[in-house]
Every structure is written in C-alpha cells, then in structure tokens.
Amino acid sequence: MWWFQQGLSFLPSALVIWTAAAFIFSYITAITLHHVDPALPYISDTGTVAPEKCLFGVMLNIAAVLCVATIYVRYKQVHALNPEEPQITKLNKAGLALGLLSCLGLSIVANFQKTTIFAAHICGAVLTFGLGSIYMFVQTILSYKMQPKIHSKQIFWIRLLVVIWCGVSAFSMLTCSSLLYSGHFGSDIVQKLHWNPEDKGYVLHMITTAAEWSMSFSFFGFFLTYIRDFQKISLRIEANIQGLTLYDTAPGLINSERTHLLSKDS
C-alpha cells in the first residue's frame, strides 16, 4: 500500500497539490498572455484578467472544499483522541471555526478580483491569511499539549517553525502593504498589474509580493505535516433505515439515518 492510500492522507496531499497547481497554471497563463510581469506578481494578480481568472476561480473554489474537508477531519481526529480534555476541546472548536472562516476567505479571494471589488477581495485575503495563520497557531498549541503521548515532539517543533515562518512573512506583508497602499505612491496602485523598477513604491511592492508567496508556501508546509496524522484515520458511513418504504409511515416508524462519518483506525 502506497503512503497516500493509508487512511485519509490523500486529503492534505490533494489540498496542497491542487492549490499549488491553481497558482502555477494561473501564473503561467498570465505570463504567457503578458497580463502580469514575470518577477513576483501578487498571487491574486495572476487571476485578475480573463481567461486566467476563470481558471483561478474554479480551482481555488475546489481548493476551498478540500480545505474544509481537511480541517473537519483534523477536528474530528483531535476530538476522538481527547474526548475529556476541556482545554483541548475548546482549542479544537476554535480551530475548526477559524479554519472554516479561512476557507470562506479563500473562496471570496477566488471570486472577487481586486480590480473589480477591492473591498471584498481584501476581506477575503484577511480571512484567508489572517485567520488561517491563527488556525495554524492554534493547531500548533494543540500539538504541544498532545505531546508526547499522542503527538511526537518532532511534529510539534516542525509546526512551530512553520508558524514562525508564517508569522515573519505575515508581518512583512502587512507592514509593506500598509505603506504601499497609504496613498503616498499614487491612487492607481490597486489597478496596477505591471511594475517597473523606476516606479514609486517598487521596492515595497516586491517585498510585499515576496512575503505573500512565502506565506502561501508556509501554509503548504503546515498542511503537509498532517499527512502522517491522517494515515491513522479512516472514513466510514453507516446508515440505519427504519421502515420498509420511503413513504410517510405511522408514528414510530419514521425513516431516520444515523451516520458515523469518521472513525479512528486501531
């Protein structure tokens, strides 16, 4: 059995591969059609102009669904491993809420380009990167509290390093983008897709885009750490139907369904 056939390890793998493919294909298309500059454009700039914005939107919507599934499975796994730990339960629920909101933000970014509805695009980016970063931090705390009995110390340290990487990238992006969009470098920056080294704010632009790509890769790295954990969990659906037909029945014989979505492998 291959590693990606064990448990649900294909979920985080598919999430990372599919999202990376969305970025790469949109980037190649935008560069080929000369819609953006080859040197570190914003990720969203590679999905701003048709036809690449169509590809970008569809692929990121699918990525958001994969992300929802991954975050939910992680939530159920932690819940199953620590059913009677109140602090871990609260952190786990907080992580689920943060993760789902981050997925919503990813879908918003995919469908609202910055050159059309800038406010919605920025809102989506804040949900994706902002709450996504906090989600990673919460999961790292959970990894710390679950070691060494359930989580290895190695996984905790890897996740901690990835979270630090994400934090440095987020701070750089937030600082430089705030300066860049402060109004001191012109009012057309939102619509600007091509940059020259002589342009005002070019250095800030390059730092911001580099930090954005770096932060995205830190997200990839974090979800890849789930592969080993997801190899130990499987998906099972069990349906129990009461009644001989699907028509309305007498009281007490109403059809019902009971499902066990997730169960931990022994």
Rank of each mutant, 00 (worst) to 15 (best):
residue 232 K to A: 13
residue 130 G to F: 06
residue 55 L to D: 04
residue 11 L to V: 14
residue 231 Q to H: 07
residue 197 P to E: 02
residue 150 I to K: 10
residue 170 A to T: 15
residue 198 E to Y: 02
residue 112 F to G: 00
residue 163 V to T: 15
residue 77 Q to K: 09
residue 202 Y to V: 06
residue 67 C to T: 04
residue 126 V to K: 05
residue 140 T to I: 07
residue 47 G to C: 08
residue 266 S to L: 04
residue 64 A to N: 07
residue 157 W to R: 10
residue 222 F to W: 07
residue 16 V to E: 08
residue 51 P to F: 07
residue 110 A to T: 03
residue 99 G to F: 08
residue 178 S to L: 02
residue 259 T to L: 10
residue 104 L to W: 11
residue 147 Q to E: 15
residue 221 G to Q: 03
residue 55 L to W: 10
residue 96 L to S: 11
residue 19 T to I: 04
residue 100 L to V: 12
residue 130 G to R: 02
residue 106 L to I: 08
residue 238 E to L: 09
residue 35 H to M: 05
residue 45 D to C: 05
residue 260 H to E: 11
residue 81 L to D: 12
residue 34 H to W: 06
residue 23 F to K: 02
residue 142 L to T: 12
residue 119 A to K: 08
residue 122 I to L: 05
residue 63 A to Q: 03
residue 228 R to Y: 13
residue 79 H to Q: 15
residue 67 C to Q: 09
residue 56 F to D: 08
residue 228 R to G: 06
residue 69 A to L: 09
residue 54 C to H: 14
residue 166 C to R: 00
residue 150 I to G: 04
residue 35 H to V: 05
residue 4 F to M: 08
residue 46 T to F: 05
residue 107 S to G: 10
residue 157 W to M: 08
residue 80 A to Y: 09
residue 166 C to F: 14
residue 126 V to C: 12
residue 181 Y to S: 01
residue 47 G to Q: 06
residue 45 D to S: 09
residue 226 Y to D: 10
residue 152 S to V: 07
residue 71 I to K: 01
residue 204 L to I: 02
residue 85 E to G: 02
residue 212 E to K: 00
residue 22 A to I: 04
residue 75 Y to Q: 07
residue 142 L to E: 14
residue 76 K to W: 09
residue 204 L to M: 03
residue 248 D to S: 08
residue 61 N to Q: 04
residue 66 L to K: 00
residue 95 G to I: 10
residue 147 Q to L: 03
residue 198 E to R: 01
residue 140 T to M: 10
residue 30 A to N: 06
residue 176 C to W: 01
residue 117 I to K: 03
residue 241 I to T: 10
residue 256 S to R: 11
residue 63 A to K: 01
residue 63 A to I: 03
residue 2 W to Y: 13
residue 179 L to G: 03
